[in-house]
Design a protein around this nucleic acid. Structure first.
Lengths: 232, 232
DNA sequence: TCAAAAGTGTTTCCAATACACCCATGT
DNA sequence: ACATGGGTGTATTGGAAACACTTTTGA
């Protein structure tokens, strides 16, 4: 008897990614318009079938690189498993959903049938993909607050005001530049490059350029409350 | 409890749970000793194959209820997908891992080949199950700090010192009773029942009994820093 | 009356927000 | 000079930890 899990098309596992980027001042997600039924013309997340020889993260990275030319992911992490028996028509497919982040200075080439949409103004989406996008947005917003995840949205060098706009767009509310700088500096996440950006057309003091000190995700605030007793 | 990897030909999805409970003053996990190869005699997490007609959470709840008589789970949540191609011998099996919590006042009946182990003193574990237990412990510790998840470890009524011991055991460091009470009270998570517990044999003031006000998980501290601007 | 355990009042400390003020550049 | 945007110094606030002190019981 043949092992069904080795037959392509029958294994019920797929990987999907909500790839987020701040574009034009808003947090946007990369969607792909389905050509065929079911859910023709609706918009879905990039991804595809999970192969037997790769783990889920390898798989989503490969599929994004192959299908939508997204190679410059600054961060990838698991969101959750979506496994409702009726989440897609036909045999049940278990989806491992991911959050992917792209720095705002890169504009990856994407196929003609894909487009960026603000996460707050999604078009008609396919299957349960809208829930995945919402989950991704929530995860990003939470982690911006207690990790160094900003590095995955920011370009290599940036001014504080540019960073302020990034954080404001991603969080959905205004953050003050002065507080942002101090919070990130206190945690040792920011360092000046020594360079400055040219002033705008109306003049003004040239802004200092900064970079993030690290490029892997780091939890900076492990506990909100109930911290361990001070050793002193 | 069946071993999915010993039954090739079935779909490559399983569900596993790290069921945690505070027992004897330490955070413990329910493990099941494997009888057969591979990894005979090693200890593994309860769980089993995912059926086509149920989602992963339904599945893990069913399997825990059926196989190890754990029906009194106060909280269940997804941890992550474990999907390395070589995580188990034979065809790859994708595992959806869960965290389960049991209040310390219930002692579920478990089969003879299962046992509770402190998460800090695990025996020889099977496959990648130790990593899952570590992930579960980390998740619990983090969420105790910014959610009301304590309700899932505590009995229906408790004294503040009993709650202090629960939190201390779960977090792995001492918390002060006075601060614990104030932190939880400030968030409106605790309410007095009006009753008191009898003093110990050596006397002492009788302790007031409290209960948690809600029994679904609630995020009480959405952001550690970068909070939205005050509306006032 | 004393010991033991529980609970409250108060102080200290720290980090984040808010805001006023100074700095550097183009016109 | 002055307008414009950038940056720093300082005050305020709020919540958590630490600690001293009071309360209530049993022996």
């Amino acid at each position: 008897m043949q092992d069904p899990s080795s037959r392509p098309g029958l294994t019920g596992n797929e990987v999907l990614a909500a790839v987020l980027q701040v574009r034009d001042g808003s947090l946007q997600v990369l969607l792909w318009q389905r050509a065929q039924e079911p859910h023709a013309h609706r918009w879905s997340l990039p991804g595809g079938r999970l192969c037997d020889t790769e783990d889920v993260e390898t798989s989503i990275r490969r599929q994004l690189a192959e299908k939508v030319d997204v190679r410059k992911l600054a961060h990838v992490e698991q969101l959750a498993v979506f496994s409702a028996p009726d989440r897609v028509p036909g045999p049940r497919v278990v989806a491992s959903a991911f959050l992917g982040l792209i720095p705002c200075d890169v504009d990856p080439e994407v196929p003609a049938d894909t487009a960026w949409y603000p996460v707050d103004e999604l078009p008609a989406t396919a299957f349960d993909h809208e829930a995945i996008v919402q989950r991704a947005r929530g995860r990003l917003r939470a982690k911006l607050s207690y990790t160094n995840l900003g590095f995955a949205l920011a370009p290599p060098e940036f001014t504080i005001s540019a960073l302020r706009e990034l954080y404001s767009a991603a969080l959905g509310y205004g953050v003050a530049a002065t507080n942002l700088q101090r919070v990130l500096s206190r945690r040792g996440l920011l360092e000046p490059t020594g360079h400055t950006a040219p002033p705008g057309p109306a003049g003004g003091r040239p802004a200092a350029l900064f970079r993030f000190t690290g490029h892997g995700m780091l939890v900076t605030d492990p506990f909100a409350v109930l911290r361990p007793p001070s050793t002193a």
